[in-house]
């Protein structure tokens, strides 16, 4: 073979190889989409156990108030802002509790106020440092008195969003039902009048417009809006 022929020959091989590589890439890509669910069934329980193991009942370090990043906080919701009649708004706590409660905002604002400056981390990859003010979930549960079998807490929202949390995360000292954000009243788009706020969970766990808190002894088939679509349930940070 002449040099020219060798060159032509090698370029033909490389073009064939290029097609082979593209074909293999496409195959891996399609397999990756088809198999993500079974892969998650194996890895998610491991990751959730790992995150639960790491979870500390101690407060996590906070940021100075000057560190807040209001411009970085992106508003996410799954079907827009629900209209809430504040005059008749009630937060109910029910389920596996000895004293079910129905509280108006005025009652809630009588409870001890907690403020924290934490990082809000979204599953999408962005994060923002936010100041949240409100009541601790643990104070609310102390009033409602969960029964001994209580293990999970469901949060239902005015827009139909629903979430469930492990009890240890709910009674963490920085898990709040917030009605204040960055020093002002909580805006409607951020979940007014009441929303979950905690440094220890991803953003999709932190329901906005919370109206019902239900304590349960087990996880129900429906575990959360995004979880039922494929997200991890624990969502610990």
């Amino acid at each position: 073979m002449s040099d020219k022929e060798i060159l032509a020959d090698s370029s033909r091989i490389s073009r064939r190889q290029l097609f082979q590589w593209a074909g293999a890439g496409l195959l891996v890509n399609v397999a990756g989409t088809l198999l993500y669910d079974p892969i998650g069934r194996i890895s998610m329980p491991i990751n959730e156990a790992f995150e639960a193991l790491l979870l500390s009942s101690q407060p996590t370090p906070e940021f100075p108030i000057t560190a807040i990043e209001p411009e970085r906080l992106i508003v996410n919701s799954f079907r827009g802002i629900p209209s809430i009649d504040l005059a008749n708004f009630q937060l109910t706590i029910s389920g596996e509790v000895d004293r079910p409660l129905a509280l108006k905002m005025a009652d809630i604002q009588q409870l001890p106020f907690t403020s924290m400056v934490i990082r809000q981390v979204c599953v999408e990859g962005w994060a923002a440092i936010v100041q949240w003010g409100g009541i601790r979930l643990r104070d609310l549960l102390t009033l409602a008195q969960p029964r001994s079998g209580a293990k999970y807490v469901y949060f239902k929202s005015a827009d139909g969003y629903y979430e469930s949390w492990d009890l240890a995360s709910v009674v963490h000292p920085q898990t709040l039902l917030a009605y204040q954000m960055n020093g002002k009243d909580l805006p409607a788009e951020n979940g007014a009048p009441l929303r979950l706020a905690a440094p220890i969970k991803l953003g999709y766990k932190q329901s906005k417009w919370v109206t019902e808190v239900v304590v349960t002894s087990q996880l129900l088939p429906k575990r959360g809006y995004w979880e039922d679509l494929g997200y991890e349930w624990f969502g610990g940070l």
Binding site: G32, Y36, D37, G40, S43, G230, E232
Partner: peptide
């Protein structure tokens, strides 16, 4: 470009990444 990603959507990508 989607061809060089894995998982199809965010939850799928996270499943693969964290496995």
């Amino acid at each position: 470009p989607w061809l060089i990603t894995l998982g199809g959507w965010l939850a799928g990508g996270r499943n693969w990444h964290f496995a």
